[in-house]
Simulated assay, not measured.
Amino acid sequence: MKHLDVIDLFLKILSMKSVTPDDGGILDFVESYLDDFDSYWFNEGGVKNLFLTKKFGDGKHLAFVGHVDVVPAGDNWQTNPFVPMIEDGYIYARGTQDMKSGVASMVCALRDIENFNGRLSLMLTSDEEGDGTFGIQYMLPELQKLHLLPDECIIAEPTCENVFGDAIKIGRRGSINGVLVLKGKQGHAAYPEKTINPINLIAPILTQLAGINLDDGDSDFNPTTMVVTDIRSGMEIHNVTPASLKIMFNLRNSTKTLKEDVKIFIEDKFSSLDYELKLEQSSFPFVTNRESALVKKITKVISSVTNQEPKLSTAGGTSDGRHIAPYGVDVVEFGVINNRIHAVDERTTIKEVESLYKIFVEVLKTY
Rank of each mutant, 00 (worst) to 15 (best):
K2E: 15
S15R: 02
S32A: 11
L34W: 02
D35G: 00
V47R: 00
F64C: 03
P72L: 09
D75W: 05
Q78P: 00
T79F: 11
I86W: 09
A93I: 08
V103A: 09
R111F: 02
E114D: 15
L120V: 05
F134D: 01
M139P: 03
L140N: 08
E142K: 13
H147P: 01
L149W: 12
D151H: 09
T159P: 11
V163H: 11
F164Q: 11
I170C: 03
G171W: 06
R172E: 05
I176K: 10
N177L: 12
V179F: 02
K183W: 05
G187V: 10
K194F: 12
P198S: 11
A203Y: 14
P204Y: 11
I205R: 15
A210C: 01
L214C: 00
L214F: 01
D215P: 05
S219G: 12
F221W: 02
N222R: 15
S233D: 06
T241R: 10
K246L: 01
F249D: 09
K263W: 07
E280C: 07
Q281K: 14
F284N: 15
P285E: 04
V287M: 01
E291H: 15
K296D: 10
T299Q: 15
T299N: 14
K300L: 12
S303I: 02
E309N: 15
P310A: 10
G316Y: 00
T318C: 03
D320K: 04
G321F: 06
G335F: 07
R340W: 01
I341N: 12
H342V: 02
D345M: 09
V353H: 11
E354F: 00
S355N: 12
I359P: 00
V363S: 03
V363Y: 07
K365H: 11
T366W: 06
